[in-house]
């Protein structure tokens, strides 16, 4: 007992040196994009405003879980990035704050539509289309034809060559499921998922895992967001990105102010800054290939050009609601995943 207390006291004394420091204006940022991008945003905002940013990087699902757990005593101020659904859910559960930024005029329509779907509790900051990527070395080795359309992926020669995430655990895969339902109609969409199921070698847990596996040569095709596939190519892996010929769905990376934030003013400053063309144009420097929501922001030539891709009119409100999600996932569980492969 005594030793335990003495030891902790000694350690406490040791720790004290690091603790005391004056508090300037600060901001706690929950960032759900990749590390390099989040770092760039943190230092960018600090340089611009002198406000100290405490940044935590977590996937959008993890952040959503955290924001929800912290609801009665929020620790974060603003949540930037990550696919739109958890942001919409957070809005639905009243975890985020309503705000209309003066920057709205400069944004693409889809970014504003996202805000309107959530009663102005979130807004689009970037978007990316769903598609797939393949490892060209493996494709050649296995003598497979180049896939160009969703339909190509259900051909028998692709048996055991395709990876996609499990829609129960990944927003990306859920977007795929919802895309098929909207693209082909519910029955045909599920028929497609069943046919695809025969060719899938693994349902991964995380959304971008399939394309990483393709990069390492562990699978030939990975169904992911196109910007994730492009990032693989940029990193040096032999990945070719495909925009499916039938048309495809997309995600809207979003941003929300957390309700009851301790630094609400700084959070709003950040919010407005994050919608500027200057800030969004820098994403390409850290190899992020999503399309910015500010019309004037510059993009990399590698960024998939959404205007040349056939996009469906994705209904975020309907397919982002918990009810529809539960129904589709339940149906997928019983009708698709239980089938023999």
């Amino acid at each position: 007992m005594k030793t335990a207390l003495l030891r902790s006291a000694a350690l406490a004394a040791l720790m004290m040196a690091g603790g005391a420091s004056a508090q300037a204006e600060s901001l706690t940022l929950y960032c759900s994009a990749d590390e390099a991008w989040c770092q760039q945003i943190k230092t960018g905002f600090e340089e611009k405003t002198g406000i100290t940013v405490d940044m935590t990087r977590k996937s959008s699902g993890e952040t959503y879980a955290q924001v929800r757990a912290e609801a009665s005593n929020p620790k974060g101020d603003v949540w930037w990035g990550g696919t739109g659904d958890p942001h919409l859910q957070a809005a639905e559960e009243n975890l985020t704050e309503e705000y209309v930024s003066p920057m709205r005029g400069e944004l693409h329509d889809w970014a504003i539509k996202q805000a309107e779907a959530a009663g102005n509790k979130t807004i689009g900051v970037y978007s990316g289309a769903l598609g797939f990527g393949y490892n060209k070395d493996l494709l050649a080795k296995n003598g497979l034809p180049e896939p160009k359309c969703w339909a190509d992926l259900t051909k028998p020669e692709f048996k055991g060559q395709i990876q996609i995430a499990n829609p129960n655990s990944s927003g990306t895969a859920y977007t795929t499921l919802a895309t098929m339902v909207q693209l082909m109609g519910e029955d045909k969409g599920f028929d497609y998922m069943k046919a695809l199921h025969k060719n899938v070698n693994q349902y991964t847990k995380s959304g971008s895992a399939p394309i990483k596996a393709a990069g390492l040569g562990e699978t030939t095709v990975g169904i992911v967001f196109m910007h994730d596939a492009v990032a693989q190519t940029a990193a040096g892996f032999p990945i070719v990105t495909v925009a499916p010929c039938e048309g495809t769905g997309y995600e809207i990376g979003s941003m929300s102010l957390i309700k009851g934030a301790r630094n609400a003013e700084a959070a709003k400053k950040f919010y407005d800054w994050a919608l500027t063309a200057e800030m969004q144009g820098k994403a390409k420097d850290v190899k992020s290939f999503q399309l910015p929501s500010n019309k004037a922001a510059t993009v990399s030539e590698l960024t998939p050009d959404l205007s040349t891709i056939k996009l469906i009119d994705y209904d975020f409100k309907k397919y982002g609601s918990s009810e529809e999600r539960k129904r589709l996932l339940g149906k997928w569980d019983t009708e698709v995943s239980s089938l023999p492969q």
Binding site: E62, A65, P86, S169, S170, A173, K205, R325, K326, L329
Partner: peptide, 24 residues
Amino acid sequence: PLVLGGNFDVLSTEIFFAIVGAQN
């Protein structure tokens, strides 16, 4: 299990994704 599990699901990762996954 996260890296090597393939389609062999186990409880620990299921728990994690029940919380952080699309279902929450």
